[in-house]
Each structure stands twice: as C-alpha cells, then as structure tokens.
Write a protein that binds this DNA or RNA. Sequence first.
DNA 1: GCTGCCCGTAACCGCTTTATAACCGCCCCG
DNA 2: CGGGGCGGTTATAAAGCGGTTACGGGCAGC
Lengths: 224, 224
Amino acid sequence: MKMLVADDDRDLRELIGFTLSQAGYLVVKAGDGPDAVRLFEAESPDLVVLDINMPGASGFQVCEAIRKRSRVPVIMLTVRGEEEDLVRALDLGADDYLTKPFSPRTLLARIKALLRRAGMENSAPLSAGRLSLDIDEHTVRIGEAAPVRLTRLELRLLQMLVANAGHTVSTDRLLIQVWGRREGTDRQLLKQLVHRLRQKIESDPTTPQLLQTAAGAGYKLIIA
Amino acid sequence: MKMLVADDDRDLRELIGFTLSQAGYLVVKAGDGPDAVRLFEAESPDLVVLDINMPGASGFQVCEAIRKRSRVPVIMLTVRGEEEDLVRALDLGADDYLTKPFSPRTLLARIKALLRRAGMENSAPLSAGRLSLDIDEHTVRIGEAAPVRLTRLELRLLQMLVANAGHTVSTDRLLIQVWGRREGTDRQLLKQLVHRLRQKIESDPTTPQLLQTAAGAGYKLIIA
DNA sequence: GCTGCCCGTAACCGCTTTATAACCGCCCCG
DNA sequence: CGGGGCGGTTATAAAGCGGTTACGGGCAGC
C-alpha cells in the first residue's frame, strides 16, 4: 500500500513518513503543491495525506486536482482550527481533516478507518521471512524477486505453511486444509503439490531452503 | 436517507436531530444504548451518530453490536478528548470521531464526506488511470477518446473493477456485485460479459491492456 | 410486425491445473 | 540381506478454466 505525504514542514513530513513506514506502508513525500500533484500522477498512491498550507499550490488546489481524476482517500492537515477550512476541505472531496498538532496514533487510527471504509484494507499480504503472500492476487514474492503466480491449491498449501511459519505442520492438517478431509490417495496428492510448489519457490528445488520436510511428521516453512 | 442519533443529552440530541432534518435527512433518536441497538435493528438507518457516554450500554458496545451485522457509516461523539477513546472507537469499526463541542456545520461536513466515501451519494464520477466512468450517463471514456456507451451489466462490472483498480477482484465478488449470487452457469455469464466489455474498451481485445485476467483468481483493471 | 440491442445459453478449442499411477532411492528393522 | 514404508520424481490421463463463436429469446422503439 503506497501513500503520498505532502507537507512543506520538513520535520512533520519526515515524522509522518516514519510513522507510516513503521506501519508497513510505502511512502512517497512531496514538499510543495506542484510536487504533490506531479508525484500523485507518477506514483498512483493508495492514499494521500495533504497539508493545506503549502507553497506553490495550496492543499485545496492539490485536492481539487486529485479529485478530478481519482477517488483515492485524502486526509487533509492544517495548523489552523478554522471551521471554514474544514468545510471547504471536505466539500472539495477530502475524506478527513486533522488539526495540528496531532499524534501519530491518531493519524494511523484515522487512516485505518478510512482504508476500511474505502474497502482497501484487504489484500494485506501475509509474510514470513523473505516470503510474502498476496491472497487476492494469488502470488508469492521471495525477497525482491518478481512475484510468482500460484494455483489455487498451491496458494492454500502455502497459506497454511506461512500461517505456521517456523513450525512443522502435520500432513493430516495440510490435507484437511487444502482438500478438506479425504482418504486413500491423498498422501500422493500432497507429495505432488509440494513438489510443484518447490519448483516455483525454491532457487534449487532439489535442496529445499524454504519448504523443508519433517520426515514422518509433515512440512515446515523456514523463516530465514 | 435515514439517520439514527443516539445521545443521552437531550439538548444535544435535539440539536443534532434538528440539524440533520434541516439538511433533508430523516432522523430517528435514541436516548440510551439499548434503545440505540433496538432502533438500529428496527429502522435500518443509513448512518449512525453515536455518543460514547450513554447509560445502559456504552457507545463502544453499541458500535460493536452494529458492526456485527452492518457496515453502515458510524460517527462517534465524546466529551473527552482522550486519544484512547478515539483509537478504540475507530478500531471497533467506527468511521469518524468528533470531540464535543462541535458545530453543526462541522458535523454536517463530516457526514457528507462519509456518505460520499461510503458510495451512498450518486453521480460521483469514478476514474482509474486513463479511464473514467460516468454512472449516470452509462458511459466510459478512455483517455481523450469519445465516450463509449455501456449496458447495465457492463457498467456494474466496470464499476466494481474501477473501485478496486489495480487489485484483483475475485470472480465470486464480481458475480455477487453484478448479478447477486446465483448458481450454475454463472461462470459463463461473467466470461461473456468480460468478453463483451473488452470489445468495447480495449484497443486490441485479443491482448487486453486494461481489463486483465488473473488466472484462477479473477480480473483486475490496470492503472497505467 | 419488424429491427436492433441486450443478455442468457451452449458448444468448441487450447491451455493449465489436478488426479492417478508407476518407479526410484533411502532408511529402518527384523 | 531383504522387505516395506516413506518421500521425491517423472509420466500420463482427466478435469477445469478462460477465450471465442454462434444462436435465440425478450424487449423497446419505430
């Protein structure tokens, strides 16, 4: 999730940026109005935090420009407690409005509420070690490599392993999770599925580094 | 548009009620927590204004109860300026949080912003990347090209995709959104609809640039 | 009643995914 | 030493999925 922070106050900009980074978001920073608009178009962020008082173009103008082409969530900031500003900001299409000073916790809480309302809180990628799983996209990423597409079953298997990263998951539990309780040839299916998954995520599938076998017990995901 | 106002302070309740009535909304009033829950279930309001300090059941409890069964927009009020309360309220699923005293204008502005975000106000032109959707006109525009007319189903499909632009939307969600849950041949319907939509919006329908398939997962709109 | 559009239904194709089966090597254990 | 169980690998068959074409019924407007 990428967010644009636009504020001419360098300290505050860095503070907000740091807060958002800590919360697991990618951050793009702008120091003035035109910069904000340019970065918005270049980066297509998923949310914008916008100061009203900025050189070049006021936050109002930036907000207006953004709303002409996008419904992205916008939170506006101001030092003044003027009601006029609040009404104007929200009328221009902003979603929320905070008066400085505010605490990082407050900002984060409001951002989360807004993302939830905008229906973007999902697709929070599960991750374990260098591995991050995107359930919606059916992809997994190892380190900075390009995402790898997973099939339905591969996704369910890996989801189970990631959820229990570092611990062995018994074959029985895996079978139940992935296929939903069956008998007979199931052991074979799991064998096959693990093999195919290894081909996709291991750099050398013959000597697994991530998806290791716990002989007689099950499989486990190694968190590096 | 019907709104529920829950506050044990009679004067404030009436003031808020009056403000909302003036703005053209229907208002239902509750004086305590249990009353609020009961009225919520009976009246199915489109938005809830909820005081935190109430006899019977606190605003938190009421909010929790509401969120168990509905995603209706909720704005919470408090006399205290405690950050704890704000974080807790928003974590419980509230959408906004106001500290008393506040002016009617502020409340109205925030309500409007929230309704807009919740998509309960019409004629908000959606757009994503070079693509902009006009719900009222049933048209879509790609870049500067002439608007293309869409059918009812095509519009709903594209609306869903635009709302989640850049992210994969599962076939299930699309089916529910466009047709409203059915069985049997549904997969075929979506296949068809996507095909027809591509004919209209893709410059080369055989190699989609905008409406791409996420195999085994769903479809996604690419934001250029 | 004719025409054109919308949309549901079906059939076909090529490709991917999943199921089934067979074979291999290994280790444990009598 | 020789099964037998287990896990890995390879091969092949079956099922499913997505794209495409075609057809027909319903309905509005002329």
